[in-house]
Design a binder for these strands. Structure first.
Lengths: 198, 198, 198, 198
DNA sequence: GATGAATGAGTGTTCATTCAT
DNA sequence: TATGAATGAACACTCATTCAT
């Protein structure tokens, strides 16, 4: 796993590697890892199955690479969203909107991070879990910045919010409320209580 | 899927069928559907792979049966828990405790309901989703019974709470807080706001 | 490698396992391990490729089992051949005849022991080498029993004889001298010198 | 197999071709033909797999070329070794020493001649066998020059000696006796008998 | 001369399932 | 009821080879 040739040497790469990765991200996120065969990915990328292996060493490496990209993207969206905000609750709200929007509409890569459960792929379960953990640290910090009453656990507030958001792909219907409004609703349910000023 | 012999004649050797089902529930819930082979289940049930098919027509039927049992069990626990309560918030709390306790500690069958994502098994995805939906209606009713401020969406409150609880198996560590206390914390985070009298 | 089902439970075995093993022994010994595919073996055994795996866990296990059988057979032939002999040179000659006859004509299993070089199959190279070594110990003992002049190394005499015989499959033509007569010639080339009586 | 460009124009960049051939000789002789992939050879020669095909038309041609070189080298060593000798037994001894020394220590190319069994590569099996045969004719001549008793077959003496030597790579350990001394021992085992004068 | 990229046939193997006994 | 044995389709992957650039 020291990187495939195309990644080591991206110059002459007619971005076919990206094509493969895109195909993998889409199929893995929509059908899951085990229901997606290398043949499926090859077909989607308009390649022959064997050709994938020029770009990626294994199915697991393909997932891992896509997953990393997913974490990068969702992290980037969240970081951008909160950059200009100072108010702790606003920051949490912006972060939640970015999280849910990326998760639900923006990118197959980001969906991967939520849809694929690390334990499903034992060989790389630990790395995947760590990557996600790393991303979620942002929410830990955001929640810790809130001024909460003493008897309120910031840990559970974080788990409550993140859990609820990560479960959203299960029930979310594209036709209904926008991801943004879902996030706002979640925050509204939590916010007023702990900021008596409002 | 017209039912296997043992299910048509449920009295006959009910034991062995249950043994198979137990094995399936345990393995499906701990490793997932796709990482569990019929051979694994047979081994755990101390049978040969072919023998399973006397009891269940297919891997999917095995999962479906176990899933149904899981829904039944968790539903029963919740129903019992709220039977004696009248206060809406107390009822929601008791239900949440029962939900989380069953989910996290009580039974492999119940874990199945959360751990197995219907879309993972396209052939029976709809039935599974419906079974879960049916169970979760309880929470719809419980939340609707709360007296909430007008600007608060009971739908999103339900989704927030259920999502957070269903995500718990991802981060829950057996050594830490008890499932009961997790549920109480979640409720405490939501409750005070809307019932300022308490 | 704790033994395949059919070997653990040989009773009801309609000796299909043996059919597979026979096919493997023949093909491995005539074409070599790497030029023989599991599909080839299956075809020869009138089975489908997947069916082989009911009997043997892997291609390597198949080879190993056949190789063990080969060692057993050639060892048995040699042991029987020398059982009634007392004179050391006669014993060596009988052993050599048995060795070469089994090797060149009797059985694909025995040919395996010579035709397949352990290093060709790294995963089981050590076991194979040990099995052959174990067999060849017989010749060490037989040569040690000869009364040799002091300046003659019994080690090299053994290596000379065994090497020459094991090389025989390379040049041996079924139409020419019999294996027996080849062995006798080899012994005649070595014997007279060290038995001054002649 | 009409020859690759580099072979048609052997002056041009002879270096790179040799590099490839060296890599092939080393890997083929140490791991065998089938366990060595073109990728392995390319890596060892610090090239990309596709580049090999500028120099050699196929894996088989690569082996054939290296094998020819091996035969040439071992033949040369033997020819040089016996050039100055007149006594038949001395000639045979010198030839054997040269044969074994080249085989066991001198060159991967020479080892190829012994380590690679022609039948392993059906497409060129005959050519390989012929090449080796051609080389071994030397020993036929050397043995025929010995003055042997009438009842001793010079053919079998040759097969005995050559077989024993060619089997040596199987048991030879670099730490032990030198190849020279092995060859001398073999000759000593055969010689005294037929030349009682010595 | 050499490379990046792809090909396509083939490999060993898995696995849900079937069925005669 | 259960088993031994087999099936056949699918799977991830390998590898010699090709070829435009």
């Amino acid at each position: 796993m020291t990187g495939s040739p195309a990644i080591r040497n991206p110059r002459r790469n007619h971005n076919r590697s990206k094509q493969v990765l895109d195909a993998a991200a889409e199929l893995f996120s929509s059908q899951g890892f085990h229901l997606t065969s290398m043949r499926d990915i090859a077909a989607q990328a308009k390649m022959l199955p064997g050709s994938i292996y020029y770009h990626f060493a294994s199915k697991e490496e393909l997932l891992l690479t896509a997953y990393e990209e997913g974490v990068k993207r969702i992290a980037y969206q969240v970081d951008v969203a909160i950059a200009a905000e100072r108010d702790p609750w606003n920051r949490l709200e912006k972060a939640s909107i970015a999280h849910l929007e990326t998760l639900l509409t923006r990118s197959h890569y980001a969906q991967l991070v939520i849809q694929v459960r690390p334990e499903e792929i034992p060989a790389i379960a630990k790395v995947l879990a760590q990557l996600r953990d790393n991303y979620e640290k942002r929410f830990r910090a955001l929640v810790d910045d809130l001024e909460l009453p003493e008897d309120v656990s910031s840990s559970y507030l974080r788990l409550l919010l993140l859990g609820a958001m990560n479960w959203a792909p299960i029930w979310y219907q594209p036709g209904g409320d926008s991801p943004r409004s879902v996030a706002e609703q979640f925050i509204r349910l939590l916010k007023p209580l702990y900021s008596p000023s409002k």
